[in-house]
């Protein structure tokens, strides 16, 4: 069996989990294996949706003790499920929770682990992963020595394809409690927008923005085209009040949106490392020699303070709504 750990939000499967599930279905089909979707929490209501993405079996570990995320408890649930079902492949999305729990579960299973993978295949019945290393400056093909193979899938890379599965429900036993660590409180940002790592469209600003307040024009463009706003390290470190969570690059977030618009960003190697996996790159820069243009599918040489508001206007005029 190929087992995919899935996360729910507001009773729905999170998009990165749906992507992992779809990829799991593809791998299961390639090897004639069954696909299991695994959920854990105080309530797993909404887990039935996994059948839509091809799950043959839907496994739920439901207990009050799992109401708040605990690394050790969830890792135990994942590892126990792998053992109970004799699964050989365990996948999760490379989200904050996925990246926290999957390596711990792998160690518990004595298994190799490939993180944040952008490609998966089955070779001679074993998982093979392709993953960006050096923040995307190179790609490593990873093969496994262990019987069980664990990987996390990078959000926004694998398509979430619908394919009906039997979705037979099964419940799992749950750990008793007394966990080593537990999440006590979530301090959410007000925006409620998707995280950069999962965003489909990103509008980023660099030192050329001159001031944090000017990021407002990027917000307006992002709102018009259904995107979120990122920044270069120069902008984050400039003392403009931008949080580090906005930083794209080798020491920030590594992103792979469909569209990345770089405004007033020169294209330093550490910045490029974080966004070169984007499908389409647009650069807006007043310097025609800026290195970012070497990477851009579409380049606009010009003053961003003139171009960006025009883009917002054009997008609105053409009826491009948020998606």
């Amino acid at each position: 069996m190929i087992l995919v750990f899935c996360e729910l939000k507001d009773g729905q499967i999170r998009k990165p989990s749906a992507e992992a599930l779809s990829e799991g279905r593809r791998l299961a089909d390639a090897t004639g294996k069954k696909l299991g979707a695994l959920f854990a929490g105080a309530s797993c209501a909404g887990s039935a949706e996994a059948a839509k993405y091809g799950a043959d079996v839907i496994l739920t570990a439901e207990a009050g003790s799992l109401a708040s995320y605990s690394s050790d408890a969830f890792a135990a649930v994942l590892a126990d499920a792998v053992k109970a079902k004799g699964a050989t492949v365990l996948l999760a999305a490379a989200t904050a929770v996925g990246k926290d729990v999957a390596p711990r579960a792998a160690a518990r299973l004595g298994a190799g682990y490939a993180s944040d993978v952008t490609g998966l295949s089955m070779v001679d019945g074993k998982l093979q992963a392709v993953r960006p290393v050096y923040a995307g400056k190179a790609f490593a093909t990873t093969s496994f020595a262990s019987a069980v193979q664990v990987a996390t899938t990078r959000p926004n890379v694998f398509p979430a394809a619908e394919k009906a599965g039997a979705g037979a429900a099964e419940t799992l036993s749950t750990p008793a409690g007394d966990f080593k660590s537990v999440v006590k409180e979530i301090l959410a940002k007000a925006s409620g927008k998707v995280d950069l790592s999962e965003a489909n469209v990103i509008v980023s600003g660099g030192r050329g923005m001159k001031d944090g307040a000017n990021f407002k024009i990027l917000e307006e463009l992002a709102d018009a085209i259904g995107g979120v706003v990122g920044a270069s390290r120069a902008a984050v470190d400039a003392g403009w009040g931008l949080p580090h969570s906005m930083q794209v690059g080798q020491t920030g977030k590594v992103v792979s949106p469909t569209l990345y618009i770089a405004c007033g960003i020169s294209g330093a190697i550490q910045h490029i490392a974080g966004m070169s996996g984007s499908k389409f790159i647009v650069a807006i820069n007043k310097d025609p020699e800026a290195p970012i243009f070497k990477l851009a599918d579409y380049g606009i040489v010009g003053d961003l303070f003139e171009v960006v508001p025009e883009l917002t206007k054009a997008a609105k005029a053409m009826g491009i709504g948020s998606n």
Partner: peptide, 29 residues
């Protein structure tokens, strides 16, 4: 070890892009 790297490759070159001409409004359009 649980896993090993069997190949390391550089990412494919991105195809050459194009610059958009005109004033800001035309470029944006």
């Amino acid at each position: 070890a649980g896993a090993q790297v069997s190949a390391l490759a550089l990412p494919p070159e991105r195809p050459a892009g194009r610059k958009l001409e005109g004033d800001a409004a035309a470029q944006a359009q």
